Amino acid sequence: MDTDVVRAVNELTVRWARSLPDGNTVVSGLGLWPLLAILATAADEPGRAELAEAAKVAAADGSAQALALIDAIEGSEDLHAALGVWVSEQLKLAESFDSVMPAPLVGKLTGNSAADKPKLDAWAAQHTNDLIRELPIEVTPDLMLVLASALSLRTTWVIPFKELVRRFHDGPWAGGSWHWLERVDGELDAVRRYDDLTVITVTGDADVDVLLGIGEPQASQADVLAALLGAQGEGVPGSRLIDQGQPGTEVAPGVKVGQTTAPRPDLKLSLPSFSVETEHDLMESRELFGLSAVTTDPGAHGHFSSISPAPLAVGQAKQKVLARFFATGFEAAAVTAMGLMRTSMPTQQARRLEVTLDRPFGFVAVLRESRLPIVAGWVATPTEPGD
């Protein structure tokens, strides 16, 4: 997989994560990036340069790189991706359309919501294994083109968790009873400290891992997520952390040295199960995504002359995304859509590390080999009360 593209997707995800309001949330920079790259190739100036800068691509190469990324993802066992384009029956296409819009032409738009919306929604459901059943786009008579991406991820933990109910009497989650997950294994180096950040790798059984990140209690959501996405190098592995203090000592954020009756040191991981689902209106942060120019009134000539001689502007841009972390695995899905509109617009035998995520923490799912981030999010409060 192209390392420059991986870096570009990661940078987009970091910028987006830093802009998010506090609270439970999840985003997919991977779902958005191909659309920005394709639009960069298709747009006229000044939108072309703005989109290329947001996607960190050469504008002329954006469409090809987007398609190559989707093809590369399809080589994954756990992660699947699709691109789709729907064009209005009323839109005259430019001769250059096929070269700037490489995504498969899925179908036509009639402008009739009762006819078009079910087709769009069925595509979203098909390409997310029914995790997301609606394409986040409003069908109107002025909707001339829809460009969409879909991602779906399902992985099973190599070592499953035990399920229990836990109640807190102090801390930010005090007074609640939560559905909780715990497991013990011997892989101490699944935990690593990067300065004021602890990263825990939960390994899937194929080619996707989920990284959990917790910072110091006073650390902001934005800083923890950015640090988690940017964590590089070896850090301080758990096999060294375990010797840095006596039982009861905190040796990294969220990590204490504990005790076990097992014959060898081990790692206990404890956290709430979570399910986070969010819809983002990208038009509310259009400067962040390079959409400022192409969302303005284009006048008589439009912003996308290589798509159509008709004056077009981006009038809708949304993403629906979800992530679920549970006892046996992790699943996530994202559907991102852009709408181009026609304008007018006990006894000690060995030590253990005890990792407890009992306060807000971040997460990111990555392809193991390339470290391509798939979804990243934040758990401010547990989402599933205990019975």
Rank of each mutant, 00 (worst) to 15 (best):
S292A: 14
S292L: 12
S292Q: 11
S292N: 11
A293Y: 01
A293M: 03
A293I: 00
A293F: 05
A293S: 13
A293W: 04
A293T: 00
V294K: 08
V294R: 09
V294A: 05
V294D: 07
T295A: 07
T295G: 04
T296G: 14
T296D: 15
D297K: 14
D297N: 14
D297F: 12
D297W: 07
D297Y: 11
P298E: 11
P298S: 10
P298N: 12
G299A: 01
A300I: 00
A300T: 14
A300N: 11
H301E: 15
H301M: 13
H301S: 14
H301P: 01
G302N: 12
G302K: 08
H303W: 15
H303R: 06
H303M: 00
H303C: 05
H303P: 00
F304D: 11
F304R: 08
F304T: 08
F304I: 00
S305Y: 06
S305W: 09
S305G: 12
S305I: 01
S305T: 14
S306A: 15
S306G: 07
S306L: 14
S306N: 15
S306H: 14
I307Q: 02
I307H: 10
I307L: 10
I307D: 07
I307S: 01
I307T: 01
I307E: 01
S308T: 04
S308L: 02
S308K: 10
P309Y: 03
P309D: 10
P309S: 07
P309C: 02
P309N: 02
A310L: 04
A310G: 04
A310I: 01
A310Q: 14
A310V: 07
P311T: 03
P311G: 04
P311V: 05
P311K: 09
L312I: 00
L312G: 06
L312S: 09
L312D: 06
L312Q: 11
L312W: 04
A313N: 09
A313V: 08
A313M: 03
V314M: 04
V314A: 03
V314R: 05
V314N: 09
G315T: 04
Q316C: 04
Q316D: 10
Q316E: 13
Q316L: 08
A317V: 03
K318N: 14
K318W: 10
K318Y: 07
K318R: 15
K318L: 01
K318E: 06
Q319G: 02
K320F: 06
K320I: 05
V321Y: 03
V321I: 02
V321Q: 04
L322M: 15
L322Y: 00
L322V: 02
A323K: 01
A323E: 03
A323L: 00
A323P: 09
A323G: 02
A323Y: 02
R324L: 08
R324Q: 12
R324D: 09
F325Q: 06
F325G: 03
F325V: 13
F325E: 05
F326C: 00
F326Y: 15
F326M: 11
F326G: 12
F326A: 14
A327S: 14
A327P: 06
A327R: 15
A327V: 03
A327W: 13
A327C: 02
T328D: 14
T328I: 12
T328C: 02
G329D: 09
G329L: 09
G329M: 09
G329V: 08
F330L: 10
F330R: 07
F330W: 11
F330I: 11
F330K: 07
E331K: 09
E331W: 06
E331I: 05
E331T: 07
E331C: 03
